[in-house]
């Protein structure tokens, strides 16, 4: 297993390199630059700004400069949109809020999703299944940009239990985490139910049952392990997405997280910030997919590290 992980970590280097390179050139080919604004500026001013940010150099030179700074100094450059901030600073500043929101949402998603999914599978085609399944379906049918405002209107404005938005006290964490968590809970519940149903029919479960193993042992020891495979595959990218923040949620609830930077940096043509966020996300995705692969072997002894 250690060899497997070591090899994967080595593979990360070319993968990251390709991602950074592709992104670097992609953002440059998008029309509009960081200094385009509604009121036209003179060519001289633009030239000065570009010179200050090193955007006047030939593209290949900008690219090597960027790579050098990132690899040697871990310096992700200056943001062009937030003039006095560096990308490192912005990420360090915004990531904690996204991690908090993401962590809580993930907790909600896993607890709700897994229990609803397992219940639905075990009590298949009973009222419990229908209830759990329709909860999941409802979560899938209501997009976050509808659910978020509805929760705010009910719990913040009508009932007055929470603030309508903001990220100052612990109460402020509840509504956004719930909104984001429910969406993922729905997906997890559906996949868990599906995966469990597959496994509950397999021979080894029947064998276990025939041997007189207790139902709860069958469910948690055998069925859940096999049934979780699809959920785990789904969770890798999902967790990366949750932890790096959600544009919609952060906008609705006014959360100082990274999710908005992901989208807005692209809109602002803030090249360095786009690259910085992409690198962060790439590292997360790669790490999580690696963890997923390890967990899957653990869940299913039939798999081997290869």
């Amino acid at each position: 297993m250690l060899r497997f992980i070591a090899r994967r970590l080595l593979e990360t280097i070319p993968v990251l390199f390709i991602i950074v390179t592709a992104t670097f050139f992609m953002v440059r080919f998008v029309p509009g630059g960081p200094f385009d604004s509604e009121k036209a500026t003179t060519p001289e001013i633009r030239a000065n700004l570009e010179a200050y940010y090193g955007l006047n150099l030939p593209l290949h030179q900008q690219y090597t400069n960027y790579l050098k700074a990132v690899v040697l100094d871990g310096d992700l450059g200056r943001s062009t949109k937030y003039a006095s901030r560096t990308v490192n600073e912005i990420i360090a500043d915004k990531l904690p809020a996204s991690l908090q929101l993401g962590g809580l949402s993930l907790l909600i998603a896993l607890v709700l999703g897994l229990s609803a999914g397992v219940l639905a599978a075990v009590k298949r085609n009973t009222k419990i299944d229908y209830l759990a399944s329709s909860f999941a379906m409802t979560g899938i049918c209501i997009p976050t940009f509808v659910l978020g405002p509805i929760l705010v209107l009910v719990f913040a404005i009508h009932l007055g239990w929470f603030s309508a938005s903001g990220w100052y006290s612990w109460q402020d964490r509840i509504l956004p985490s719930l909104t984001l968590g429910i969406v993922y809970a729905a997906g997890i519940a559906r996949l868990t139910r599906g995966g469990m149903l597959e496994v509950l029919n397999l021979d080894y479960i029947r064998t276990a049952r025939a041997k007189g193993a207790s139902e709860s042992r069958i469910i948690f020891k055998h069925a859940l392990r096999g049934g979780l495979l699809p959920v785990v595959s789904y969770l890798g990218p999902a967790i990366a997405g949750i932890l790096t923040g959600s544009f919609v949620i952060e906008t609705i609830f006014q959360i100082p997280g990274l999710g908005r930077e992901f989208v807005n940096s692209a809109f602002n043509r803030d090249y360095t910030l786009v690259l910085g966020t992409v690198i962060l996300y790439a590292v997360l995705i790669i790490a999580l997919n690696l963890i997923v692969d390890v967990v899957q072997v653990w869940l299913n002894p039939k798999l081997k590290f290869e």
């Binding site: 913040a156 404005i157 603030s163 309508a164 938005s165 906008t251 609705i252 609830f253 006014q254």
Partner: peptide, 16 residues
């Protein structure tokens, strides 16, 4: 700093 006017309006409505 509130970008969304919908969010801003709700904040105003709750008196914040």
């Amino acid at each position: 700093a509130i970008e969304s006017s919908d969010t801003e309006e709700r904040e105003f409505r709750t008196g914040r």
